[in-house]
């Protein structure tokens, strides 16, 4: 069943056409890859889909409903989560805190009155929920460390955990492996696959690492200069000469 459907999304920035009539679809529990050279408009597309930017034309449908001009946080409440290319972590807060904030936001728990009464105590069920996700991502040991002191890879996992704990139906991952070496990438890929297997969540993934894309994504959409130049099963698309030309610069 189609979970997300973007039709004809167009976005212009003062003369530059960043996105030109882009279509993207994602079914439930699917993992779709979004690839393309730098500057192709991938993050812009993400921003349009998540509500950070308003497209100049086109529609974005989630679970069949037009998202229209819905704000970022409202889309999040519908079950859309995301990670960021330039990580948007919360400086000074621990890993647990990140997940806790996300969890409470998701359950609409907490607020001024309860703050004054509950004195900031963390309920055991909250602790369990957070720990479960931490364990899944291998972050239990780092749970109480502030994110500022963590490595890049761990930071990305924290973002992922933060997104997953909100029990989303759809997650946008923006270059989750960028900056990671081979070993780390493989670890995260494995983690991601396990997490996906356990949940009813669809993933749209922007990534440059072809191997990771091949391992994770069933389908792939290729952007170049704001246009979709190919779309389909991963292996097929990666063989497409047009894609190879644009992306890999290979002319064979």
């Amino acid at each position: 069943m189609t979970l997300l459907e973007a039709r004809g999304v167009t976005k212009r920035f003062a003369g530059i056409v960043a996105l030109d009539d882009v279509d993207l679809a994602c079914d439930e529990r699917e993992i779709v890859g979004l690839i393309g050279p730098n500057g192709a408009g991938k993050t812009t597309l993400f921003n349009c889909l998540t509500g950070v930017l308003r497209p100049d034309a086109g529609r974005v449908l989630f679970e069949g409903k037009d998202l229209g001009a819905l704000a970022v946080h409202r889309r999040a409440r519908l079950g859309i989560a995301r990670t960021f290319q330039r990580m948007e972590l919360f400086a000074g807060m621990t890993v647990r805190d990140h997940l806790l904030v996300a969890d409470r936001a998701h359950r609409r728990a907490g607020g001024l009155p309860s703050d004054l009464v509950l004195r900031g105590r963390i309920h055991p069920s909250e602790r369990d929920r957070v720990d479960r996700v931490l364990a899944q991502l291998g972050l239990l040991d780092d749970g109480d460390r502030p994110v500022d002191a963590l490595s890049l890879g761990t930071g990305r996992l924290v973002e992922l955990g933060r997104a997953l704990i909100t029990e989303p139906r759809l997650v946008f991952l923006d270059e989750p492996f960028s900056g990671l070496d081979r070993i780390e990438t493989d670890e995260v890929v494995a983690t991601l696959q396990a997490a996906h297997a356990e949940r009813d969540v669809a993933i749209v993934l922007v990534e440059h690492d072809v191997t990771a894309v091949q391992h994770l994504c069933e389908r792939v959409v290729v952007l170049d200069y704001g246009r979709v130049i190919a779309s389909g099963p991963t292996d097929t698309v990666l063989e497409d000469p047009a894609v190879r030309r644009a992306y890999l610069g290979v002319t064979e």
Binding site: V72, R82, E88, A105
Partner: peptide, 9 residues
């Protein structure tokens, strides 16, 4: 942005 992406206004 991070906070908004969690559903908080």
């Amino acid at each position: 942005l991070g906070v908004a992406s969690l559903g908080l206004s």
